[in-house]
Computed example of a mutant assay.
Amino acid sequence: MLNNLSSLPAYLASRRSGKPRDMVAPGPDAAQLDAILHLAMRTPDHGKLFPWRFVKIEDRDAFAAMLEKAFIATNPDARAAQIEAAIAPSFMAPTLIVLLFAPQPSPKIPLWEQQMSVGAVGMNLLHAAHAHGYVASWITGWASYDPVVRNAICQSEEQIAGLFYIGTAGQPLEERPRPDPAYIVRSWP
């Protein structure tokens, strides 16, 4: 947990995404998860439209059954091993949150700004989990784009922005390659 602002750069540099399949208990309890979600909501949101929603996946067996139905609908000839792999994410990590993009009608706030807001919520969710001592990961994959999954979880124009897995690291977290600033930072004029 962050004790003072002078340690903020080191704290931010220490955040890593964990592999959901390697996450173990404990995950956040109900009060911690509530705090994590409240922190995630503290994000830029031009127009105060709240173009995002959270779905707590509490019944993992029901979620797996829905994923199986969705996968088979798209892959009717799937073998048992393929189906198992498709539903395996249902049981990874102690906590699973689905972040939804919930576009709001607005004559002033373009869709692009609303999409950036949901991205900021996702990043805040990762940081909030880390601040509470957990590891988290933001995954999309086939289920995020599947129409059966979308119909089961989303309302109206909502779309799945990603699945967020939260738990305790069961394996050491790896540092992934980071971009060289020389290639992605430029000055103007």
Rank of each mutant, 00 (worst) to 15 (best):
M1Y: 00
M1N: 02
N3G: 10
N3M: 02
L8K: 09
P9N: 04
A10H: 03
M23D: 13
M23H: 11
V24Y: 14
G27V: 09
P28Y: 04
D34E: 11
H38E: 07
R42S: 09
P44W: 04
G47V: 05
G47S: 07
L49D: 03
F50Q: 11
V55L: 09
V55I: 13
K56R: 15
I57H: 02
E58G: 12
R60M: 12
F63L: 15
I72F: 01
A73R: 01
T74D: 08
N75Q: 06
P76A: 10
A80H: 10
A80M: 08
A81F: 04
A85G: 10
P89D: 11
P89E: 12
F91M: 15
F91D: 03
A93H: 11
T95L: 03
I97F: 00
V98I: 14
L99T: 04
P103W: 12
P105E: 10
S106F: 10
L111P: 06
Q114W: 14
M116V: 11
G119V: 08
A120T: 07
V121I: 13
V121N: 03
G122V: 05
L125G: 04
A128W: 01
A128E: 00
H130L: 09
V135W: 09
I139Y: 10
I139L: 11
W142L: 00
Y145K: 06
P147F: 01
V149H: 03
A152F: 15
S156H: 13
Q159K: 15
A161Q: 03
A161Y: 01
G162T: 04
L163K: 05
F164Q: 03
F164Y: 15
T168Q: 07
P172T: 00
P172W: 12
L173T: 00
E175M: 08
R178I: 06
A182W: 14
I184T: 13
R186L: 10
